[in-house]
Amino acid sequence: MIKRVIFKGQLLPLLLLAPQLAVTAVFFLWPAGQAIYQSLLQEDPFGLRREFVGTENFDAVLNDPLWLNALGNTAVFSVSVAALALGVALLLAVQADKAIRGANLYKTMLIWPYAVAPAVAAVLWLFLFHPSIGLIGRALNAAGVAWDYKLNGGQAMLLVIVASAWKQVSYNFIFFLAGLQSIPRSVLEAAAIDGARPFRRFWTVVFPLLSPTSFFLLVVNLVYAFFDTFGVIHALTGGGPGNATETLIYKVYVDGVQNLNLGASAAQSVILMVLVVGLTMVQFRFVERRVHY
């Protein structure tokens, strides 16, 4: 869809676009190009010598047990965050949709965690799960569970998953509730008249109608778990204990910023870029379909 009536002029529109294009070129395109270029080079830490090494950095990254560990962690973490955040949000949205009285009040009380920064969410959950000052952490230890997320990798992973999912439930809740409220009442009444019980009604009528929303949210949640949870991990566990909560993004940061291994960091960046392009394309292909729903 394009406009039929437009203004004349060549210079003005270019001037209007200039700020955005300048920022994009200097801070996005140039660094991205640099990342690709550096991923093909081997450089000593002082930047004195560099040589072209082709795909050597990529081979090194893909065969690095720590990178594969981070890949596995990312998979477990992302899938768990998405599943937990989507499951809880759907449950709450279905209940809020039923309780028509007060639905808006519940909405207000459930959406605010969206505004809490991931790192702050991490800190809030630390206050609950700290082994010696946290309410739940202490209770677990008193009950005989050896709870210390700073020593136990599995527990650390569990904690970063819970803190990350907590924040994302609000977002999913808003979309699920909107999706539920847009289902025509007549469809539900028809199903009820046909004798379908509530549970069956949900799985055979409501859930299929919600599936476009659910799929869209799944992609958004995976993107969130991938990229926006750096703060949770950095504030809570720092990737540890050991490397138990080190995700792909966290490893790029550690290798590039702390270890100054530029070639390896750049190669990891390029691999992540490919991943983002893929996810973005899935997201946009899907958005087309969502509009028709």
Partner: peptide, 21 residues
């Protein structure tokens, strides 16, 4: 499309070169 591309380049995937800039 150039503007659109920025969607695919979050800070996290270009940390070091952006810092150099």
């Amino acid at each position: 499309w150039t503007i659109f591309l920025t969607l695919m380049l979050p800070v996290e995937v270009r940390i070091i070169p952006t810092f150099q800039v």
